[in-house]
Write a protein that binds this DNA or RNA. Structure first.
Lengths: 124, 124
DNA sequence: GGAAAAAGCCGATTGACCGTCGGTTTTTCG
DNA sequence: CGAAAAACCGACGGTCAATCGGCTTTTTCC
């Protein structure tokens, strides 16, 4: 998917113009600068990119970081399938974590412990 | 989304025909039986439904339970955004769990503990 | 056994959305 | 001012969901 490739090309860079994005991912695909421009425009309209006119060209930057987008998309799915209750979501998380490697359950526990320790800081 | 509504209408029922599904969710929407039939057919082709011919009519049933579908969709997102490493996925899970209610972190920990206890049963 | 009803199958349309450009207008700057 | 760069406009082909009409096949049942 070109849109995703474009986003990938933007994450970690602070503002790139169409030409630069095209140079990185458009040329390889043999597509025109115009195509990349349209894609940037569509992503902008969808709110996934911000842009700022610097002298002559727009500089595009991600409105969401990769992590945030992933969370939004997962959140969309969760919202669709968990009717208000949190359990289905949590159960799915545990299942998915364990899917590839049981070791992930330990990792998840560790993350969780860290998060809770941090969250409890101001309420001892 | 009609496809989702149809799936919802199928989960929890063991095999329904087009007519029955239409009666439940098609009539309310003022759409024809044909439309529901097409939707069932498309879901079947996509592998989301099974079907079995019983005398004259097909009886459709979900190929995946609601929970499984949710997991598959989340898994798709995760696969797209976590390039092999498990951490981004796990971090997203923790964030999403905490999003609505911090209490979910505790719930998640409990689920996790249960799962690990169970998983460790045959390897003490 | 044959007609009527039921169900399935085929193809068509519409409306989004994506990828892809070509051509035109606007902007910049030497 | 005039050329080059960038943006803008609009179009087209492809995919996919929703929607249906009508033809074909299968069932039903008098």
């Amino acid at each position: 998917m070109l849109e995703l490739a474009v986003l990938e090309g933007l994450w970690g860079h602070g503002g790139r113009d169409a030409k630069s994005v095209h140079a990185e991912i458009g040329v390889r695909r043999g597509i025109s600068l115009n195509t990349v421009q349209s894609t940037l425009e569509r992503l902008f309209r969808k709110g996934l990119l911000r842009r700022e006119k610097v002298s002559h060209a727009y500089l595009y930057s991600p409105a969401l970081q990769r992590k945030e987008l992933m969370e939004r998309l997962i959140g969309d799915v969760v919202e669709t399938f968990s009717d208000g209750r949190p359990e289905p979501m949590l159960a799915a998380f545990v299942d998915l974590a364990a899917r590839v490697d049981e070791e992930n359950l330990a990792r998840l526990e560790r993350l969780l412990a860290e998060r809770r320790a941090q969250g409890a800081e101001d309420a001892p």
